[in-house]
Design a binder for these strands. Structure first.
Lengths: 201, 201, 201, 201
DNA sequence: AATGAATGAGCCTTCATTCAT
DNA sequence: CATGAATGAAGGCTCATTCAT
């Protein structure tokens, strides 16, 4: 049954989405290939027509999540660094809101992934961290927000604290920190309070 | 084969240690009861003479790790708050160095535990966070290091960033941040640079 | 590997037959799922594609045996009651001869089933007993063979003694009472000797 | 710790009683040596000081039950045969009442024992059947109650129907046939109704 | 391409049995 | 004698993976 590339792609997408649901919900080990295929509306065998193994499917989900997360964080702007960080984190949290399943997998892996998959999973957050880092890197010394901390360490800490806040957010049922609070919270913790110069919302 | 309570306790300890090794290395799901027992020098059945199930063994390891971690963090002192935080984190990192296996389980669970065990695992880090929080809580306003952030959020961020730094430490093979660097790094990130009063490195 | 419903049904049948062999030979507890699957020509996992658990497989065997046993006993007839009883028991013994495995499970359960499964197993013999009971129930008082015994008690005793005779038959290697002797033996014991009116075999 | 023969015997007795409880309740396979020893007030190892294996313990229980059951049925008397049968069955049912645990094991095994133990278990009921058979054997032809049935077959049927009635009794929670009804019920079924003063049915 | 029946390695758990204390 | 810690074979069940249809 030949099928158009579009259909193939659509099938692959729905499998990825269903897999993200399961992996985000119960993790790599407990997730069940059969459940994933059924959730996507296919039979078990179909998964293996698109992905070589459970692990491969998982990595495909991580990669997809990583790509989306990074895309969401790219924020061309010439605002002050702190604002740009907040904007990037807000964009990231927006993506989290829209793609909850993928976001959970992404955050889970960035916080503490499956050791045996480290080599293939570790690069996931890298682009996001670099996007944050680049905000500081090209800054003239005068505008450095945290001159006492290397740019890349700061970027890593920003991304990590955001992930932690998201974990808290999910564990608390979405209340403890709300998604909207997270960017400001993380920025304040690491970059200091928002300057009150001349009125802020 | 009646044996002294000491012998029983020793057996239980070696089982716990072996279990911590495995759980810390590959997590609850992938850990194998048989491997744990053999690593401890016993046969599979012996594990079940001491723990009712794999899950119970896991929780016993978590509890033990939690207890030790908390004990390590208790630091009576009247030094300045920042120094006390650093002391507490140094003590914690010292425990991490001495009990690597248990520490990995502890950190792994604090960062992102098994959802199904949440209710029984979540309390693990609580005492540690409170120990940190209490450093700030009883402080006169004049000495507040981060008056712009609630004490408990600050404590949570300190503990979380330390966990993240440890994860990086392990993932990098112990080099990226060394254990010795972590307390200062975390304190600097969240409490600002060490005051240079009259010369410090 | 989509297959026709017929193929599936055939697989299920061969699993049931193999299971009946094992359960009839050594009982529910000692029977081994692996042995059953191999005997049927499949791998262990296949059993679980058709039956949720060992217990479920067992109950499916009992139910199947019960259905067949009952079907064999249904004997529309207007002969004298004693003859009809003998006919019913002969039909039952005929089924026993043709389906030895299932018959052993059936008889074993009727004589003394697994206590924990009582609620689900007890109904097994019920239909057979009722088939026998109905032979007496609709009889005018004048033709009652054993007016001194309630119909249902008599039916229960007939079925029970037949089961016992079968147990003896099997335990003796098929000789003590032969299958052919059982119906007459049981009828004689409970309904009295065959009337010698004008010559019977 | 040397111990008097009386004490040893008492220990053996309590182990036998506890074992009868368990075997009667859940059968040979499901019975648990540890549970038996604890129920008897000893530790697991003690069982193995008295019985070589679980199977041996089981057979010791069966033997003991068999011996008691037979003893209960021995009824010296010169009453009419039917009355002597009823007396023997009443005595047996009396023993059942007083030794419920052992009785369950006995009946369970007589109805349908573990095939693998057949050779060692089959003799259990033999003495009881012979005790019943001897009631008829030495009878002058004039007094034969069921001249149409061989004495030993009749004895076997009497014992078997009594066992079945007991199984019903236990399965029904002690109500369907009460213990007191069983002897008369069985005698009536196989020997005919009780003679009414002058004249029998 | 999709299916889902078949597979079998793997794993947790139970428990009869042994034996040092 | 009694104990109970240690053992390890056994077995039910799961599930990722294969492949004929």
């Amino acid at each position: 049954m030949r099928v158009s590339p579009r259909t193939k792609e659509a099938t692959r997408e729905s499998l990825l989405a269903a897999a993200a649901d399961e992996f985000g919900r119960i993790g790599l080990e407990r997730a069940n290939i059969d459940a994933i295929s059924v959730r996507a509306g296919y039979a078990k065998g179909t998964v293996y027509n698109y992905f070589a193994s459970k692990e491969d499917l998982f990595l495909a989900v991580v990669e997809r999540a990583s790509r989306d997360a990074v895309a969401s964080a790219r924020q061309p702007s010439d605002a002050p660094p702190r604002d740009r960080v907040v904007l990037a984190l807000e964009a990231f949290c927006g993506w989290v809101r829209d793609h909850d399943s993928f976001a959970r997998v992404f955050v889970r892996e960035c916080l503490m992934g499956t050791p045996s998959l480290y080599p293939r999973v570790i690069p996931a957050e890298q682009p996001l961290v670099e996007a944050l880092g680049s905000i500081f890197k090209a800054l003239p010394p005068a505008e450095r927000v945290r001159p006492d901390v290397p740019s890349d360490v700061l970027a890593l800490a920003l991304a990590g604290l955001t992930d932690l806040a998201l974990a808290q957010h999910w564990a608390s049922g979405g209340t403890k920190p709300t998604l909207a609070e997270i960017p400001g919270l993380v920025a304040t913790l690491l970059l200091g309070p928002q300057p009150q110069s001349r009125g802020t919302s």
